[in-house]
Simulated assay, not measured.
Amino acid sequence: MSDIKPINPVVKQVLELGPTVLFFLIYLKIKEDTFVIAGTEYSGFIVAALVFVPILLFAMGVLWHLTGQLSRMQVFTAFMVIFFGALTAWFNDERFFKMKTTIVYGLFAALLGIGLLRGQSYLAYVMNEMMPMKSEGWMILTRRLCAAFAVLAIANELVWRTMSTDAWVKIETFGFPVALMAFLMWQFTALQGYLITDDPEKDA
């Protein structure tokens, strides 16, 4: 932990959220255009998705340089973006990039679910040092977040299969992250009673 370098919270947020916002802006700019690359015709959405990959990697590289670390979730997300971005380009099919979100949320739900079946909270393993909480609280939060990720995975499938690409991009960029953030804030507030503080009488 001593190798972690401090970073301005605003800079951290820009590096974490900036690539997604840039993807959205690039998509808005070129969504009606068609590009011919190496003799193959690509839609504006696919080009925006491909441009998103180096933008994300650059932001992660800067974040790693400034802090000396990357979370497992960030590394996993980057791998998924690269993998499904490559499939999108290879098959010239935007559905692969849209399915990425379903698989990411689905895997998170599955991992948390596996832990629950084993009577464990993998969230506690990852976050307990950052936010000490009683084991009962971690189990409650893990169950709820597992369900939330499963709902988001299903919601993404419904959105990209039944709505326009425009609608999916907007919901993917803003709708899902805002919904997840609001859910987490609600849960942290609801589970305040399980937090471990420095007051032994309050924790008893």
Score class of each variant (00 low, 15 high):
131 M>K: 14
131 M>V: 12
131 M>G: 08
132 P>Y: 05
132 P>G: 13
132 P>Q: 12
132 P>F: 02
132 P>L: 12
133 M>C: 03
133 M>G: 02
133 M>N: 13
133 M>E: 01
133 M>Y: 03
133 M>P: 05
133 M>Q: 00
134 K>I: 02
134 K>T: 10
134 K>L: 07
134 K>M: 08
135 S>N: 07
135 S>V: 09
135 S>P: 05
135 S>D: 14
135 S>L: 08
136 E>Y: 09
136 E>A: 14
136 E>M: 10
137 G>A: 04
137 G>C: 08
137 G>R: 02
137 G>T: 08
137 G>Q: 04
138 W>T: 01
138 W>L: 02
138 W>Q: 02
139 M>C: 08
139 M>A: 07
139 M>R: 13
139 M>I: 07
139 M>H: 10
140 I>F: 09
140 I>G: 06
141 L>G: 13
141 L>V: 13
141 L>Y: 10
141 L>M: 15
141 L>E: 11
141 L>K: 10
141 L>P: 05
142 T>D: 02
142 T>H: 04
142 T>E: 13
142 T>C: 02
142 T>K: 03
143 R>L: 08
143 R>K: 15
143 R>V: 06
144 R>M: 13
145 L>E: 13
145 L>D: 13
145 L>S: 10
145 L>N: 11
145 L>G: 06
146 C>K: 02
146 C>W: 00
146 C>A: 13
146 C>P: 04
146 C>L: 03
146 C>S: 12
146 C>M: 15
147 A>T: 04
147 A>Q: 08
147 A>C: 08
147 A>G: 09
147 A>S: 09
147 A>H: 05
147 A>P: 05
149 F>E: 03
149 F>A: 00
149 F>G: 12
149 F>D: 00
149 F>I: 06
149 F>N: 09
150 A>L: 15
150 A>K: 05
150 A>Q: 08
150 A>P: 09
150 A>F: 10
151 V>M: 01
151 V>F: 00
151 V>N: 01
152 L>G: 11
152 L>C: 15
152 L>N: 04
152 L>E: 06
153 A>T: 07
153 A>G: 15
153 A>K: 03
153 A>P: 12
154 I>F: 07
156 N>D: 14
156 N>L: 03
156 N>H: 09
157 E>N: 15
157 E>Q: 14
157 E>M: 14
157 E>Y: 07
157 E>F: 01
157 E>W: 11
157 E>S: 05
157 E>R: 13
157 E>V: 14
158 L>M: 11
158 L>C: 08
158 L>N: 03
158 L>G: 08
158 L>P: 06
159 V>H: 01
159 V>Q: 00
159 V>C: 01
159 V>R: 00
160 W>E: 07
160 W>M: 08
161 R>H: 09
161 R>F: 03
161 R>W: 01
162 T>R: 05
163 M>Q: 13
163 M>N: 10
163 M>F: 01
